[in-house]
């Protein structure tokens, strides 16, 4: 949807989880990560897959940022920007919820 409003921002202390009926799954045949959702499966790009693999319903967004900043030896503000933007977008697309 091109005319969708910008997603509302997500705070770092938010705990996000998958909405029921939505999950990350490894597609063995095509060797890629996919987001399974009602009546559609879409490919999770590598960044989305890294983030979503850390979504467990207990970890706050800040912890996800910390883990990825360490894993990729990248400045935390850069990772934080990407993670918050991705999570807001996935929440708007009804994949994740607070």
């Amino acid at each position: 949807m091109t005319d969708a409003p910008a997603p509302p921002p997500v705070a770092e202390d938010t705990v996000v989880r998958f909405l029921r009926g939505t999950r990350l799954q490894h597609d063995r045949v095509r060797d890629q990560w996919v987001i399974q959702a009602p009546e559609r499966a879409f490919i999770a790009d590598p960044i989305a897959a890294e983030i979503l693999r850390l979504v467990d319903g207990t970890r706050p967004v800040a912890a996800i940022i910390d883990i990825l900043a360490q894993r990729f030896a990248a400045p935390r503000p850069v990772i934080a920007h990407d993670v918050l933007e991705m999570i807001a977008s996935l929440a708007q697309r009804q994949v994740l919820t607070a």
């Binding site: 799954q25 597609d27 045949v29 996919v34 559609r40």
Partner: peptide, 8 residues
């Protein structure tokens, strides 16, 4: 086995 992801 073939690679289907969703069954309706």
């Amino acid at each position: 086995e073939l690679g289907v992801l969703q069954v309706h």
